[in-house]
Design a protein around this nucleic acid. Structure first.
Length: 556
RNA sequence: GGUCUCAUCUUCUAACGGCUAGGAAACGGGGUUUUCAUCCCCGUAAUGGAGGGUUCGACUCCCCCUGAGAUCACCA
């Protein structure tokens, strides 16, 4: 039996040949320099910060160059499928303004290079597996799980690299004698289960010095030293479904992907992919292996973020806390491209998409995820979002994640006014960070959440009742800021407080305290806390009746 | 253990082989302000090795050591 006969025996009736598929998916008609990228999530529906990080690179690369960004569902592992996963993936990325041009969608595929769901592409993978079989570059392997375990144990004993490769599967040499040929033939005819393995051309177990290698240029890392693969890895599983390695090579070639963006955990399997591309006679895509997002572990060392231990890895964490998508994008870009922060300082009002993103400016070492930095970025990002827009966004957040704050959104214009406090001063305040924090920050505007949190300052607590009474008596809601503060100063001096903090600092024995202590009493009576934006401005928003109401309550 | 990758302040990072190793976050101090969690200014702090080599000159290039990470499936 020849290789061709073997391939016919295994795949007697495929709808198309490899060459036909090749012709069905010709090179894309795109402008020069246009990049084609893809995201290939497995449909567990769990999209984490790492996915978003990578998706961002894909999206920028494609859309900055007039190329195409598509979604491919990598569901070759039948055990892991989760219901509604595709929907979750698309909507969570859309939330962060990452949109696909092509690929799987909720209402079917869009684009000419489909099908975009790997489980529907069985015939395609098999056609190329058949081609490799016919050329003697692959073979059917009948090794059982137990036999493979035995091989591994023996290799362990001999201190050899574990795995199936030359010398460890007799089926690799199926054509060497007649007995083996007839065994293979009769097993296939009997319908026995088997996998298809690559017949690797590499030489097993050479030292690092002796092995021959390829140099692959990675767009992020530069030259990579890739040793020859010698593992006869499985390309088609017993089920007829391909492994990731084979699906990646076939799909990214046929879908004409130009840039493969993926995490650095794929680096060790690059030798396999290089051999596969070579065997199929295809050009390598440009690989972009991104650094892993890290975190400090309990032992004090950096470690890869894990979805079990680290809630901040889940995108739901950010949505639930109420981080604005623009802030997350802004943060991601600052850790993605080292020159972004500088660019942003020079162009505070520019659209984020005007920044020229490059893989060369990406770091090849793993970055620690830094919540402090995200918070800082977020503050500045929110400053550039219009108050009414911010209010609307907070409402949509509350509707989904925090209905207990529904009372905040009864009057949206009022809310916008509150959010705008101090944001248009010569030196704008940046104290809004994320939705939950904002809810707390503005809580004193609402009777539902207003409460006295801080105590009167020691310097003025004895006079608190008197201060408030005097303030209430003199209160005129139509006073401007200057008139208003003049009255406070009068109350302070009448009661023996310094009108200027400096005077008090100079001669502390001459005064009970200074005007700041007096105003803090008022601040606490109205806001319940000693820190807040400008009191006069807050009173204007709060309205006269509510101000009086709170003052009267505090006098008692 | 094998293989691959990475290594500059506490953190993220910048520096054609050539300034006093720069910026941002955090932290500390000061200032502005009626208060502050805001704003402004200033400051602390690093090239893993008292390794070897190339060079007039090394953070940068080569080698060694050390450390960290990833990976070794019919999972992706």
């Amino acid at each position: 039996m020849t290789n061709i006969e073997l391939s016919e025996l295994i795949y007697p009736s495929l709808s198309h040949t490899a060459d036909e598929y090749e012709a069905m998916y010709p090179a894309r008609d795109l402008p020069a320099g246009a990049k084609v990228t893809r995201l290939g999530p497995s449909p567990t529906g769990f999209i984490h910060l790492g996915n978003l990080y990578g998706a961002f690179v894909d999206e920028r690369l494609a859309h900055q160059s007039g190329g195409v960004f598509f979604l491919r569902i990598e569901d070759t592992d039948d055990k892991r499928y989760v219901e509604n996963a595709v929907e979750t993936i698309i909507t969570s990325l859309e939330f962060f303004d990452i949109k696909f041009d092509e690929g799987a969608t909720l209402s079917g595929d869009i684009g000419d290079y489909g099908d975009y769901t790997q489980s529907n592409r069985g015939d395609i993978y098999q056609a190329f597996a058949k081609k490799l079989l016919a050329e003697g570059l692959a073979y059917p392997c009948f090794l059982t799980e137990d036999e493979i375990t035995a091989v591994r144990e023996e290799q362990d004993k001999q201190k050899l690299t574990p795995g199936i490769y030359a010398g460890w599967s007799k089926y690799r040499e199926w054509d060497t004698d007649d007995a083996l040929v007839s065994e293979v033939e009769s097993r296939i005819k009997a319908g026995e289960p088997f996998v298809i393995r690559l017949r690797s051309k590499g030489t097993p177990n050479l030292s690092a010095e002796d092995t021959s290698r390829h140099t692959v240029v990675d767009a992020i890392r530069g030259e990579l030293s890739v040793p020859d693969n010698f593992q006869d890895i499985v390309i088609i599983k017993q089920t007829g479904i391909p492994t990731y390695h084979f699906a990646h090579v076939v799909d990214d070639h046929l879908m004409r992907t130009t840039h493969v963006v993926r995490g650095e955990e794929w680096l060790p399997s690059l030798p396999i992919h290089v051999e596969l591309f070579e065997d199929l006679g295809w050009e390598l895509p440009i690989y972009c292996h991104t650094a892993q997002l890290m975190k400090i572990g309990e032992d004090g060392n950096k470690r890869k973020l894990s979805k079990r231990k680290d809630p901040e890895l889940s995108l739901d964490f950010y949505r639930n806390e109420g981080y604005h998508p623009a802030a997350v994008r802004e943060y991601l870009l600052t850790i993605l491209n080292s020159n972004y922060e500088e660019w942003r300082m020079e162009n505070p009002d520019a659209d984020i998409n005007d920044f020229e993103f490059t893989t060369e400016k990406m770091s090849s070492s793993g970055a620690l995820f830094d919540l402090d930095k995200l918070n800082d970025v977020s503050k500045n990002t929110l400053l550039h979002i219009d108050a009414a827009e911010l209010a609307a966004w907070l409402k949509s957040w509350s509707d989904e994640f925090a209905p207990e704050y529904a009372y905040v959104f009864k009057d949206m214009d009022h809310l916008a006014e509150i959010l705008d406090l101090g944001r248009h001063d010569a030196r704008p305040r940046a104290d809004l960070v994320y939705a939950r924090q904002i809810m707390d920050f503005i809580s004193y505007f609402f009777d539902e959440s207003f409460k006295i949190e801080d105590e009167y300052p020691a310097e003025a607590s004895a006079d608190a009742a008197e201060i408030l009474k005097a303030y209430l008596a003199s209160y005129d809601h139509s006073d401007d800021n200057e008139q208003w503060f003049g009255k406070i100063r009068d109350i302070a001096t009448d009661l023996g407080y310094a009108a200027k903090p400096k005077d008090y600092k100079k001669n502390p024995d001459d005064y009970k305290g200074h005007v700041g202590h007096v105003s803090t009493v008022i601040r606490i009576a109205i806001m319940g806390r000693s820190q807040s934006p400008d009191v006069w401005a807050i009173q204007q928003i709060l309205g006269e009746s509510k101000v009086r109401e709170r003052l009267e309550a505090a006098c008692k």
